[in-house]
Amino acid sequence: MKKRKSLLLSALSVFLVTLLSGCELAEVIVFNPKGPQAQKILDLINWSLFWIGLIVAVVYILFVIFVWKYRARPENENYEPPQEKGNKVVETIWTAIPVIIVILLMIPTVTTLYDLEEVPEGYEDEEPLVIHVTSADWKWIFSYPEENIETVNYINIPVDRPILFKLTSAGTMQSFWIPQLAGQKYTMARMEVELTAVAEEEGTYWGRNTSFNGQGFTEQEFEVNAMSQEEFDAWVKDAQQNAPKLTEEMYAKILEPSHMGKETYSNTHLEWVDHGDHHAKTYLNPEMYRLDYGYPGKTFYEEHDRVIKQHSAGSNDGGGHSGH
């Protein structure tokens, strides 16, 4: 028994050392926030880790003591354990303490939830930069309505200025996540939700979709470049002057299931459709999602969709799966 315990302990320590050497703390991006929203969440995570560590410690200590002390041995073969039914006082205590811990965890949870909806402290007076986020299979489309710029798969933002993301989707549901700046929110078709974030440090942050949406899901990432206000303004100016214009035909092509590199346009698709609007028209291409194996099922079209299908150029070549 003793041998087994020590074996278990050494196995456990080897395991932990391997784990810790496997990842450096900087790589654990949730613990490496670069903005007040992510920082607030991290503070709450640390608070919860403390209490949870306490609970785990108590359970483990009791577990080890009881298993060790009351194990069957040849000497206690004839021991008749007492047939105790329970103890009201003890049971009340171990109900009451978790209740207190739950309250201690829930109060900051609720306050943080409300905080995250607000513009972070110190930035209330700043005019937020509005960016419309439209997710599609399998790329991210960003529109800057005030600057009249549209980008695909990357955004540039100024540091120390609140960014108001208006999230929606052109098709499947996705989840918009820039772990170092803010927690995630879903993008849903014909629905709009808002997310506020501030970057306090210049740098490139990584964002992705975390909500599975088919074949191209894994590669659906984007980049956030946080830069000084001057750099940002220069970029805006450059894009407005030099980037190509987006047409509805080009846009319909972008919405087809595919992967894309980074792109920049000097106007936005909001001119002809806002997918966050409940009555937005749809740009769907069911036939382009066909696999080259398996039994085909029937697809259904609304009259209204059919018009758009004919309208959008080159989207009806059917067959074959796209992507990669």
Binding site: V30, I41, V56, L113, S175, P179, A182, Q184, F212
Partner: peptide, 19 residues
């Protein structure tokens, strides 16, 4: 169980969700 509590705290779940 305890990681379930961590996930159950909505504000922190924004960082754990779907991971």
């Amino acid at each position: 169980g305890v990681t379930g509590v961590m996930l159950g705290m909505a504000a922190t779940d924004f960082q754990y969700h779907n991971t």
